[in-house]
């Protein structure tokens, strides 16, 4: 059952690089769009806010598969020329997750205490200075954990590029390995799932590093998390009652058992 595993790994690895490339490029585009549209949603000009809102609602409200099909098959009819599938995939990943990211940026900027903003006015900073030197550095720390989740979602979303024929990791499994050895489907898909898990862990490690840097930049301690998996806190959580040593928890243990 396991003698073919090295072959599966090497064949899957051919697609791994395309998955990595699409994910990294998608993250780059999504990050830029997140900041552009996230800040645009906070603009003083109503037109700018409306345009940003429309972008976010359209790309968040429709399905990623619809977007892939639309850019792949419908857009060429309107434009007159076709894009390479990989490019379509990267664009859709960037545009789709950029819309979610814009909400993260907006939320993080709004969560910076109002007094900080008032302080910048008191120091008569220009609007650009306020953002760059005071608001954004603090917002950045808040943004990193939700962006970590978003980028893992994007990694998982890159599997959908299979549908438009990009030969990434999932495609290698479905179109190359499965037709050859359908009886070992469980092993093949496990190898591929583990590759994705590995990439997700790498993204989390990278974001942890970024969070520490961002926190150090504004002179804060990053929040402690015990493992690379624990995106929402993580580890085993003791029952609240058990946390109070010598209190009611002990009473309950003695009395109840």
């Amino acid at each position: 059952m396991f003698e073919n595993v090295p072959e599966y790994i090497s064949t899957a690895a051919d697609g791994l690089w395309i998955t990595v490339g699409a994910t990294v490029a998608g993250i780059a585009i999504a990050a830029v769009l997140s900041f552009v549209f996230g800040l645009a949603m906070l603009s003083r000009l109503k037109t700018v806010r409306v345009i940003a809102r429309i972008y976010v609602e359209i790309w968040r409200g429709t399905s990623e598969v619809v977007q892939l099909y639309w850019v792949m098959f419908a857009l060429p009819i309107l434009l007159g020329y076709r894009l390479v599938p990989l490019l379509v995939g990267i664009l859709v990943l960037g545009l789709n997750f950029g819309a979610y990211g814009a909400e993260i940026v907006r939320g993080a900027v709004q969560s910076v205490p109002r007094a900080q903003y008032e302080g910048t006015i008191a120091l008569s900073m220009t609007p650009a200075q306020r953002m760059r030197r005071v608001i954004l550095p603090q917002a950045l720390v808040e943004m990193v954990p939700p962006f970590n989740n978003l980028f893992i979602q994007l990694l998982k979303g890159s599997a959908l590029l299979t549908i438009i024929g990009v030969s990434e990791l999932t495609h290698q499994g479905k179109e190359v390995l499965i037709p050859r050895n359908v009886s070992e489907a469980a092993t093949i898909w496990t190898v591929i799932l583990l590759f994705y898990l590995l990439l997700a862990i790498l993204i989390t490690m990278g974001m942890r590093w970024l969070e520490r840097r961002a926190a150090a930049l504004v002179g804060r301690q990053p929040t402690k998390r015990d493992s690379v998996f624990a995106r929402f806190g993580g580890g085993k959580d003791p029952l609240p009652a058990e946390q109070s040593k010598g209190g009611l928890a002990d009473l309950r243990r003695k009395g109840g058992e």
Binding site: I152, L155, K156, G157, S158, A159, L160, T162, T170, G173, K174, I178, V182, S183, A185, A186, W189, T190, I192, L193, Y196, L197, A200, I201, F229, G234, G235, K236
Partner: peptide, 30 residues
């Protein structure tokens, strides 16, 4: 028990739904 539940949750959450769909589609009949 809590460790196993944690591992299951993290594994499923970190890997693509599409691949899980293929996994079930090909492996369940086996």
């Amino acid at each position: 028990v809590s460790m196993v539940a944690w591992a299951v949750i993290e594994f499923i959450r970190s890997t693509p739904l599409l691949v899980q769909l293929f996994f079930a589609f090909y492996v369940l009949p086996d």
